[in-house]
Every structure is written in C-alpha cells, then in structure tokens.
Amino acid sequence: MSGIGFGFAEGRKADGSGARRALLDPRTKIALLVTMPTVLLSGAGGSHTAPLAIVFALVAAALLLSCGNIATAVFGILAVAFTQALWTLLAPLASGGAYMSLYLMHGIMVHLIPCMLMAAYAVSTTTVSEFILGMEKLHVPPLITIPLSVMFRFFPTVIEEATSVNDAMRMRDIRLGGRNVGKMVEYRLVPIMMSSLRIGEELSAASLTRGLGAPTKRTSICEIGFRAQDIVVLTICAFALVAVFAIMFGLVS
C-alpha cells in the first residue's frame, strides 16, 4: 500500500530515490503519539503537566526541524511561547470572564499545539509500509493494522471532500444561518459519503491488486530499528508517563 500515501509520506521509489530512512523508528513515533495526549490532554496530571508540555513542544519542534519542516516548527514554538508569556503576565491581573477565556486559551494552546506538531511530524515522515511494519513488530494483528492505516490515509481525503462540498453548498446558500438550515446536514453528508465510498472502492481495488489480505507473510524493504535517538525519546515518554501516574494515584503531590 506504499506510494498511495496522501497524508502519509511518499514511499521509496523503485530507483531508490524518495524518502530516506526516518530519524525515528515508527514504533517510537507511535509511543510519542500515545504518550503526549495521555499526558497533556486527558488531564490526568492536573496542573503539574505544564513543564512537560514545554518539554514535549521542544521535542516535537526539534523533530520537525530535523525533517526540514522549519515553518511549522517555528510557528509552533512561537505560539506556545506567546501564550505562555501572555498567561504569566496577564493571569494575575485578570478576573471573572477575562480570566476564564485567558485560562481556556492558555490551556488549549499549550497542551494542544505540541500534540499537533507531533502528529504533523509523525504523519509526514512515516510511510504506510513503515507504519505497517512497525505495527507488525508490535504484534498488532492485521485486522487492526489494515483499517487503522486506511483510516489515517483517509482523514485528509474526507477533509478535502468536505471542503469542496462545503464550497458548493455555500454557493447554493445551504449553510448555517442561511435559508435552508434543515437541509444543511443532509446535503453535506450525503455527497461526502458518496465520494468517500467511491474513492474507497478504488482504494480497495488498488490494494487488493498489490496483495493486501493475501494469506502469506508480508515482506518489506523498509529498514526500521531502535537507535540512540529512539532510546532518548522513549526515555522521555516513560518518564512523563510515570510522573503523571504517580501524580494521579497520589504518590507525589
């Protein structure tokens, strides 16, 4: 299934050009993708996670820099720094509604942006082949791996289809606050699902020709394996998880 990646990175071409070996093992990226929302978004560690948010934002930004996505990295770091500064300077002065909106903005930005940066890095540097190989090494059955990779592959497609349908419907004044609010949902969802299904049929046919679901063991030319940088990142993840669980179960205050 490599090569048709839309959200996923492009796979290696037959002549050896294309993606070179990524900095991190796909399993390390999965660990980061699971750890970061658990630590930052689920609220498990309460207000103690603020320093961890900064650490993870820096890790994600460094990874983005390593793969050449400088614009996203700089934007992310500036956004986190700006919100953090605004919070530190203004929070003691504000009260009531102003405090609440400031609080919400700070909480959402500082915790959400590192996760978004990480997701951008993980998706743009992992090929479908690498992802499937990593999941195989983790002994995840193909019953989960295949739908999961299709799902990630499909997110950008659904969003793209939704945007174009949205434009078409706006032209016909079928929008929130327009004259046909009742039809808004129906007239959007139905075309999106129709086109998604059509794309899905083509994807099925293409993947089946490439031997998806064949009863033999899948082979891959991707090289994956843990290296020094993986160990560093995994250690940070483990530390963060232990810290959060310790706080959650009241071992440390």
Binding site: L143, M151, F154, S196, G200, L212
Partner: peptide, 19 residues
Amino acid sequence: RLNGKDLINVGIFTAIISV
C-alpha cells in the same frame, strides 16, 4: 472471514465518523 475489502470499509467509515 474478514477480507481486505471489509477491513478497508471499516477504515473508511471510521475516518468519516472520526472527522
């Protein structure tokens, strides 16, 4: 038994529902 097409369908619909 679930085949490739079924698994792809599950992936597509989960993507739509998640969005």
